[in-house]
Design a binder for these strands. Structure first.
Lengths: 249, 249
DNA sequence: CAAGATTAAACTGTCGACAATCGACGATTA
DNA sequence: TAATCGTCGATTGTCGACAGTTTAATCTTG
């Protein structure tokens, strides 16, 4: 968990990044269902529980606000964003929009190296599908799509994708189970890559539409299922961030 | 300026929004050329000059960071974003992407009322063109495009547009002059609206491409002109936020 | 005289405190 | 009884302070 400083290793980084750590802890608490959607995030409470002051907690909350996990209400505080179906639709609508664009750009900039990177990531997807590790599968899936944005080479587009991905990860985390068969998911990336290699904008767009549209419908269906039986946003006992699972802390 | 509370009027609101006020002041300082691109924004300095503490200044800076006017470097502070040509290209590329999408959506959702609103805004554009008020002209131009996003009815898309617009306003403010003939600009909105009314996705896309692409090229040209003669990012004398224009403060 | 080491100043990250504000609850009034 | 008005605790907005880090200036040294 705690990255140790290697003799020459660079990434000893982010150990003193208090804000980042807090943001990650909060994000986990959200996707894992503590801090349920709609619940209030009390700065002082989080700060006390983590043994820090309110300042970094506030900054972390703003970070998560930018990513859409929290919403800020002036003088009232931060709240965990409720996953209304409308939000899901808006997110996927935007994602579809930028992913079409990024895919066409990526096709234009595709080099043999970048092609191989995508190819290899699909292999990873297939291998991960055998592992029965939903979280990992989702992660590798996003990695593939992120690669497309990297190849498209527009930093702003990439940042936007990262933000959307963070939000979608929350949604999927809240859903709790994978929205489809892992092997099936891995397979559907093949024709997308093929279209990008071929470089026909229309074909690329069509495949992106199919691919993302599929996820959209599936996630939408599950969210609708999950959201109709009235969410009881009660706070679980034993501390929000590090709940006592029977074992004392 | 100061909204007074009417007998029954509601909007007496948002006067005590310190962070918002600071953000606005900073934004003005940026677009007006004090705080030139690349210069450092010192929290304590701003705070002292405004007679507030560092906390709200920090929050305002984060707000402007989200809008892309500032960039944060950990442990080094906030800097006014340099307008490299690459940023301009990335911004316009993204804007083109989402504006195509929004325009097609808007066409699908277009009602007689929303059509008239767009129609009327074009009239405003024509009238404003006679006023010889570049800032106003740019503002009304953005209002037209924002209306398209409102009609498209995706809040996230709208928010994204607002962020991009804020950044583009900074760029245009730094350029200092309008990038084209106001009347010409007003006229080019006509065929775009016509295409949206007709509802043909291809025609809409083509017109958006032409319209935004034109601005892209123009702004790109001016920025290239402006950015090549090496920016000397020295700090103007007399206080950054309220420079003494000969008159003592 | 230039490159590197050293010192001093400036600044950010974080903290604890206080006042203003919000929301809940109970008292008051019609 | 229902609606309105205070009151009180909880929570945010803002402040000033301090420590560690970065940057700038100064001093060595080859």
């Amino acid at each position: 968990m705690r990255p140790m400083s290697l003799p020459v290793g660079l990434p000893a980084l982010a150990d003193s990044d208090l804000v980042g750590q807090i943001a990650r802890i909060l994000m986990q608490a959200i996707v894992q269902g503590r801090l349920p959607p709609g619940s209030k995030v009390v700065e002082a409470g989080i700060a006390r529980e983590l043994g820090v002051s309110r300042a970094p907690v506030r900054e972390a909350a703003r970070l998560l606000e930018k990513q859409g996990l929290l919403v800020a209400s002036p003088r009232r505080g931060f709240f965990v964003r409720k996953l209304e179906i409308r939000n899901i639709d808006e997110i996927y609508d935007l994602r579809l929009c930028i992913e079409r664009h990024a895919s066409v750009l990526a096709a234009r900039r595709l080099s043999p190296e970048s092609r191989n990177i995508l190819r290899r990531q699909i292999d990873v997807l297939h291998r991960t599908a055998d592992l029965d590790d939903p979280a990992r599968q989702v992660e590798e899936d996003y990695r593939f799509h992120r690669l497309i944005f990297e190849i498209a080479d527009n930093r702003r587009l990439l940042r936007l994708f990262d933000d959307l991905a963070a939000e979608l990860r929350m949604v999927i985390g809240l859903i709790g189970r994978l929205y489809d068969d892992p092997h099936e998911i891995a397979r559907t990336h093949e024709p997308l890559l093929a279209a990008i290699e071929a470089g026909h904008p229309e074909r690329i767009t069509a495949h992106v539409d199919y691919h993302i549209g599929h996820a959209w419908r599936e996630v939408g269906r599950l969210v609708r299922e999950l959201t109709t039986p009235s969410g009881n946003a009660t706070e679980p006992p034993g501390g929000i961030l590090f709940p006592t699972n029977g074992v004392s802390v």
